[in-house]
């Protein structure tokens, strides 16, 4: 399992890093923390690089290094990396430019597998997409953007499951909300929900919503298997069925204290691009963390 946690600033990224590292621990995943800096106009990019070189000779760090240093300190304070590496502070001298526009430092984790810190510059979606493709990540974790288009682009173009962190606080979330339907392909979603529930020590609310315009379907064997699977994991669960508008019902049920774990849309990318999808609508409208499993 490989997890990518995208952070952007010391002021706003703490919930993302906190929840991200908890999930990484739950999956014992190889974790990479990435900061994507602002895109520099191509007109001035070379001149800015020259100026950055000059700044380095005056002991100034490149933009973004301070954010990685903050992440390093967080990992170090929470003993998430090997203590041998934390004695001398953030190893700026080990921040290597790989010649592909990425600067990175490798650390060995304690609670999860290796932790890498990466710095990139450019358009956030394009850079994350490239990083996910390059590193073959399973889950990308990032904070919620105020731009609606960004959620659409993330779901549409990032080729991994997505955990969007909305104002995460430890005490606030006491349940996982698992919207399930009676279609195939839900086992993976249930597995993810169980892992997160175990990591946060919370129960799972399984929630099935029937579209109000369609007749109620009967439960399948496949669905029973999932329920059995959750029961065997030892996680406390409950199951509720409701009829109504799907997005509205999920958001209402999630309230302000549940982390949503749901399946990504099965529609073709073109249909999703034109029509949107239920996970996208939930992601746009909810105020709680949401993990969309692809």
């Amino acid at each position: 399992m490989k997890i990518l946690i995208a952070i952007g600033s010391k002021d706003f990224s703490k919930p993302t890093l906190k929840l991200g590292m908890k999930v990484a621990q739950a999956f014992n995943a190889k974790t990479t923390i990435i900061d994507v800096g602002e895109k520099i106009s191509e007109f001035s990019s070379q001149l800015v690089e020259l100026a950055q070189d000059q700044l380095e000779s005056w002991d100034f760090d490149a933009p973004g290094v301070d954010v990685l240093e903050w992440a390093f300190n967080y990992l170090s304070q929470n003993k998430l990396i090997d203590t041998k590496q934390t004695e001398t502070g953030f190893p700026k001298n080990r921040l290597i430019d790989d010649g592909e526009g990425r600067k990175m430092v490798y650390l060995s984790g304690t609670a999860c597998e290796d932790v890498n810190l990466i710095l990139r510059n450019g358009d956030i979606i394009a850079e994350l997409r490239e990083e996910v493709q390059f590193g073959e990540y399973d889950v990308t974790i990032l904070g919620k953007s105020r731009k609606r288009n960004m959620s659409h682009d993330l779901l549409q173009y990032i080729n991994s499951s997505l955990l969007i962190v909305n104002d995460y606080e430890d005490q606030k979330f006491d349940k996982i909300l698992l919207p399930l339907d009676y279609k195939d392909g839900m086992l993976k979603v249930a597995k993810y929900a169980i892992r997160v529930a175990l990591a946060l020590n919370v129960g799972i609310d399984i929630f099935t919503v029937f579209d109000k315009d369609k007749s109620q379907k009967k439960g399948s064997n496949y669905f029973s298997k999932i329920i059995k699977f959750i029961r065997r994991s030892g996680v406390q669960y409950s199951h509720e069925e409701k009829q109504g508008e799907i997005v509205e019902q999920i958001i209402k049920k999630a309230d302000k204290n549940k982390i949503i774990v749901m399946k990504a849309s099965d529609m073709s990318p073109i249909k999703r691009f034109l029509k949107g999808s239920i996970p996208l609508s939930v992601m746009n409208e909810c105020d709680v963390p949401i993990l969309i499993v692809k």
Partner: peptide
Amino acid sequence: AVAAPACTIVYSSG
């Protein structure tokens, strides 16, 4: 910040 290289360089300081 992007119109002139001098402004972009200063802006890149963060």
